[in-house]
Design a protein around this nucleic acid. Structure first.
Lengths: 210, 210
DNA sequence: ACCTGAACACCGTTCAAGT
DNA sequence: ACCTGAACACCGTTCAAGT
């Protein structure tokens, strides 16, 4: 994996994102990252102050992938577009929402994101407190949905093996309603957990108003 | 910290929860936990199979703290009560929502929780798919809100020092809407981020229907 | 300016051994 | 049955040294 291009902070962070995507955030270590970059662990310290700064940096790279509301775009369309975009970004990088919880140093992309969201809501007629509520509720839904999607033992639609696993582990005597949910809904053809995202988002956007 | 009571799985897990609460999930190691219990690291392996089982176990202990819907309780009251209880539990144990994302082996308390939620919604007249949507949206909101609360650099109401920090770091030229939000709302007396929880929950419960 | 080698104080886990 | 000591293959980070 030896590379000839000189190491930069940007190349370091992009490599870290790829490594976390590929092998999980637990496998992202200074040493494994250095290995990928064809360099010794200590070389990284010339571009970042330590592991914490790497974690801050890759969270900001994920925020940079999220579509921003466009100036002039009606707020419901803008919120729907950025929520869907955020969900896709968090599904591509399932470790991101975990890290977000522990980061307190928002990067530039994160700041731009929040600024654009507030700008869209304020332009749509929301008062400052109403914009705060709308942003908090929408963000909570997007982040919490990402947590649920990441915790699913399947990708949207469960495989026959996963369904068989449910049947073995969920005793209908002890958990009748969970059993009903699994056989009568989750195991049905065409089931897709991801569809709950659109339904939930519609529900919240319908209830929000300036 | 030497203790004379014999080590049990339950004592081990409760000690792990206290350690994670006190020093963060990153400080919960086999070795630090053994130290707290007055025992060698290897002694733990006689009660759990490894660290993964400890993480599964403490997530289940957090679910055990969440109030369950009572049989016969109207579903909106039940959902409101268990959402508020879940939020308090996740605020007491901020590491829990992070772990939830990576756990795929739900414990007995987790199973009982989900079963009771589905039972309440089904008894309230929700169809199986509608109950799935309602549970997914409510859980997403609760988990996502917990992520936001954990990421806040303050506890509900920001201290003057935190507000001063915002003023320094958020340039009103670059981020006018964030600056407006901070000075015109967050820095105002009586501001409490936690109040967004009730508002968001009301909004979602009002939009949900069997 | 940028990278390295050796070292330090940590991890989780296995193994063989003690009571 | 329950616990231990020593060892192994890992961590993040510091320091002094090389080019």
């Amino acid at each position: 994996m030896a590379e000839r291009t000189p190491l930069t902070r940007d190349r370091l962070l992009r490599s870290a994102v790829r490594l976390a995507d590929r092998e999980g955030i637990g496998a992202l270590t200074i040493r494994s990252l250095a290995r990928d970059l064809g360099v010794t662990p200590m070389a990284l310290y010339h571009h970042v102050h330590g592991k914490e700064e790497i974690l801050d940096g890759i969270v900001d790279l994920v925020f940079a992938e999220i579509a921003l509301p466009e100036p002039g775009e009606p707020w419901p369309a803008a919120m729907r577009r950025r929520a869907a975009s955020a969900r896709r970004a968090l599904a591509r990088h399932p470790w991101a929402v975990v890290l977000m919880e522990s980061r307190t140093a928002p990067g530039p992309a994160t700041m731009r994101h929040h600024e654009a969201v507030l700008a869209s809501l304020r332009a749509g007629g929301f008062s400052v407190p109403a914009a705060a509520t709308a942003a908090a509720v929408l963000d909570a839904f997007v982040y919490g949905f990402a947590v649920q999607e990441a915790a699913l033992p399947f990708d949207g639609t469960p495989t026959p093996e996963v369904i068989e696993g449910f049947r073995v582990h969920v005793d209908p005597q002890a958990y009748p309603y969970m059993a009903e949910m699994l056989t009568g809904h989750v195991a049905q053809p065409g089931y897709d957990f991801g569809a709950e995202f659109e339904r939930g988002l519609d529900l919240i956007l319908g209830a929000l108003a300036p």
